[in-house]
């Protein structure tokens, strides 16, 4: 299968997995990655910098209607929902939080599933609420590939178990297995 986009959702306890994944990707990794991560309300700035420390790929908070480029990691900006439009660009929204979350993982995953269909890989990581479960289901129905971090490895299991309950996922992987899987895509 020829996957062209990766979207990753995470909340409490996902920071370590996200940084490990980013740290393992080589400079010439082409597939654009979208990160939809809940953050503490007061940690509005400095998050890009924290994620960038070990990443060889540029990490950007996109502006509205920004074109999606290869080799870039896009982080949903704090206090915005992130959507994906036909024509290969990103749009943002400030509509109400969903499940107390803005960015909402569900909204981003549903939008990505609609736009990228079977070209999309979705990964749900550790988290403390059920955001992401509906999104991963939509992604699976649109023939995307659904991966969930092994709940046994998660600091907080609520999000990953909710995703697994909702959808027959393709893979339940440890962080290390997620990394190996992503690295093998490029070859």
């Amino acid at each position: 299968m020829n996957y062209k986009y990766i979207i990753i959702g995470g909340s409490a306890g996902s920071f370590q997995a996200v940084t490990s994944i980013l740290a393992s990707l080589p400079k010439n990794f082409k597939i654009p990655i979208f990160l939809c991560l809940h953050r503490l309300k007061h940690v509005r700035s400095g998050f890009v910098e924290a994620l960038s420390i070990k990443s060889k790929l540029p990490i950007v908070e996109p502006i509205d209607k920004e074109h999606i480029r290869q080799g870039v990691v896009y982080l949903a900006p704090a206090n915005y929902h992130m959507y994906f439009e036909l024509g290969n660009y990103i749009s943002l929204s400030t509509e109400e939080p969903v499940n107390h979350s803005r960015p909402s993982i569900d909204l981003s995953f549903v939008s990505a599933a609609y736009t990228f269909k079977d070209k999309l890989i979705g990964v749900v990581l550790s988290g403390a609420n059920k955001d992401g479960a509906k999104g991963l289901k939509a992604l699976k129905s649109a023939n995307g590939l659904a991966i969930v971090q092994d709940p046994a490895e998660c600091q907080v299991k609520t999000m990953t178990t909710a995703a697994i309950d909702e959808t027959p996922v393709d893979h339940i992987f440890t962080t290390k297995e997620i990394i190996d899987f992503i690295l093998n895509l490029e070859q």
Partner: peptide
């Protein structure tokens, strides 16, 4: 209108 948010609304 931006399609994705309009659809969502």
């Amino acid at each position: 209108y931006s399609i994705k948010s309009f659809m969502r609304r």
